[in-house]
């Protein structure tokens, strides 16, 4: 339990995927202008991350048993792509309301490095099945926290008087820098909580 909680908090706060590990920057910058799109996108990311971890974990055991670990990258990206397509089709057919909320973001997630990243990190860090699931869940929630916070910051930025050269993308990145700096403050948190 202690391990699970520390993994979860680590993935959400200390090692936030977007703000500390730079995974999933494209949607962070691209889809964070409005709060509701940010929430929808991150909900889809949480869902796919956990699902992808659950599916790739046994596949990795299979690869390992046959000493085919070098195929990890290619197998995982294909599995994720197929999984995303499958989820999209199922949602479209059977859960229309959920599809309207999340489904439209699904194709964007295939090439989201946060999803492939979490799957590879789980293996690199040698987590077992449940630890992997918890870490992915934490990573996804951390993604959402960063997206939602940043959407709030960006809404404030609108209508501000900004030097011409910094307008648009540059000021967004500088704002991201400040948000990321605030997350540095969490650095010792998990370590000291569970020490």
């Amino acid at each position: 339990m202690k391990i699970a909680l520390s993994l979860l908090l680590t993935a959400i706060l200390t090692n936030n995927f977007i703000l500390c590990k730079f995974l999933g920057i494209c949607p962070f910058l691209g889809v964070s202008k409005k709060l509701n799109t940010a929430v929808g996108m991150s909900a889809a990311v949480i869902f796919v991350m956990v699902l992808a971890t659950a599916v790739t974990y046994p596949i990795n055991l299979l690869l390992k048993a046959n000493s085919l670990e070098y195929l990890q990258t290619i197998v995982f990206i294909l599995v994720i792509a197929a999984l995303v397509q499958l989820v999209e089709i199922v949602l479209k057919k059977y859960m229309v309301s959920l599809y309207n909320a999340l489904g439209i973001y699904l194709p964007l997630i295939t090439t989201n490095c946060a999803v492939l990243g979490v799957v590879l990190l789980n293996i690199d860090n040698g987590y077992n099945f449940w630890q992997s699931i918890v870490y992915s869940l934490g990573g996804g929630i951390g993604f959402m926290v960063a997206m939602v916070m940043f959407a709030g910051v960006r809404e404030r930025l609108e209508g501000c008087d900004i030097p011409k050269a910094l307008q648009g993308l540059p000021i967004t990145l500088v704002a991201a820098s400040l948000v990321s700096m605030s997350f540095l403050g969490f650095a010792g948190l998990v370590d000291n909580m569970f020490a």
Binding site: S6, L7, T10, A11, T14, N15, D124, N125, G126, V190, D191, F194
Partner: peptide, 17 residues
């Protein structure tokens, strides 16, 4: 003759290994 020991240990309590 034994002159010493070398031990590899890891720590991943805070996420990074």
């Amino acid at each position: 003759k034994t002159v010493g020991f070398a031990v590899t240990t890891d720590d991943k309590s805070y996420g990074g290994k």
